[in-house]
Amino acid sequence: MRVVHYINQFFAGVGGEEAAGTEPELREGPVGPGKRLAALLGDEHEIVATAVCGDDHASEHSDFAAALVESAREKGAELLVAGPAFTSGRYGLACARIVVAAAEAGLPALAAMHPDNPGLHEAAGTPVVESGATGREMRPSLERLAAATRKLAGGEELTADDGRIGPVARVNHMAERSAAERAVALLLDRLGGDREATEIPLPTFDQVTPADPVADPADALVALLTEGGFVPAGNPDRLESARATKWVRHSLEGRDSVEEGEFESVHGGFSTQWANAEPNRILPLDVARELEQEGAIGGLHTEYFATTGNGTTVADARRFGVEWAAELHEARIQAAILTAT
């Protein structure tokens, strides 16, 4: 089969963080880890091209994926593989997005990343196989990816035995009885001694490995973040009051406090009367600035980030988190205080 392989700017040899804005391009043949992958795939399959995109570009322009898939099809691609992305969040998101775009275009596709990679949950049912945590585990990660690719090329489903990871989609359908009738039936099952019966298995939440502490807040640059729908009065960016699909950033430079009439909350999940009367109740700029002036905080970030956490999908929230983390890293921020409503 004719295979197109997706990698980021780092593995394509363009550069690290400074090159993360690299625009999408398609190169002839295998590149970087694609060379070993091509060898592992054997003679039956050929990596005809390598799709490359900078992690920042991919994170900020979700349409990069459809465009690259289109180019890949023009090259005669019959299958698309992405990664391994290890634990790199933006790279993982990009891999997930491009395999989803490929699947939507009718191409078999799979990605490889570590189970902790936040991109895993973006793959929306498109197969992902497990990789190691870092590039040091490139060899076994590529071996697993190659084996899974051969199987997928053969038209087979990938399973946990192939190292498949990620959530299985839950899909709506009409039951024969109403939820109320099913609740009564479930209660009878439980009263009858069945301790397991349920329609919703208990969810497992992401395990987040806590970041190392800052040595001393007095030396740290700290950002203020919130999911309280916190915007300048009038909501110039039209941040949604529920089911947010975006986040906003606004400057705090020259401000000692966030004042009534200048900022407001557009959160649709609670009464905003208290927030609007005293915006520091959502974003504690007044006391944070005081602590900065007293030297207890090394410095406050020049802007705050906000979204609305009200019925927001976990997928969107995860994407905001990855984007915020990348932004804060780039701005050399060491710590963040996120107010949650």
Partner: peptide
């Protein structure tokens, strides 16, 4: 609990 919609 009015509806028959469910998810699996």
């Amino acid at each position: 609990g009015w509806g028959n919609l469910t998810c699996a």
